[in-house]
Amino acid sequence: MDIFEFLVQYWPRILSGVGVTVAQFVLAAILGIAVALTMGLLKLSTNKVLKGFAVTYIEIFRGTSLLVQLYWIFFVLPLFGFSIDKFTAGYVAVGMNIGAYGAELVRGGILSVPKGQWEAALAINMSPAKRMWRIILPQALINMLPPWGNLMIELLKGTALISLISVADLMFVTKQINASTFLSAQAFGIALIIYYILARFLVTPFMRWLERFMARKMGRA
């Protein structure tokens, strides 16, 4: 069977898999950004308990395998009474993992904003929270956008692991088709191309657009 016949026959299933992958990606990205922001800010906190919490979190989620984390959330947590359905477990694991990496980017981005910006914000008597939200974070965001682009692609590719807890994403659907047809080259070939297209023609252009948008806001464009 050539690749076109293969596509004609299986595109509805592949498409549903792509839908799940995109949904997982978007949900994991939202969670990951929220976690990154929280942990990045906590790590900069002068409160030792809060800082310690962020450091521990980042260490655990960066220092161990994403797959093991996924299995923990899906298979081990229920043993302690926290049952999560597999779809939620999927994006939660990926999002929390990416959030740990993102936390370092947030922290680095905040530290890269010149000290004079803090001082100028204090000189117009802004509260510490407003200084952070209105002055520092917008500038930190611009500094950390390029590495965030990389992280988003890592995240997209990381979602393929959720097929291992039977979430019917692109990878899971592909494996099913492969198992029933033994058309491995066509099945995994199509999956390869779709992941590439998603990364190269959706995620990357979106991040570039975001960078240009932010540059315009800075009056640099």
Binding site: A120, A123, K217
Partner: peptide, 28 residues
């Protein structure tokens, strides 16, 4: 009661000149 100007200006780069001036009055 106190305002300050710095050697290196320290304007907020993500805001226009007008927005820089309005920031404190509006948000503080």
């Amino acid at each position: 009661d106190i305002g300050m100007c710095f050697q290196h200006f320290n304007l907020f780069p993500h805001m226009t000149a007008l927005e820089n001036c309005m920031e404190g009055p509006v948000h503080v």
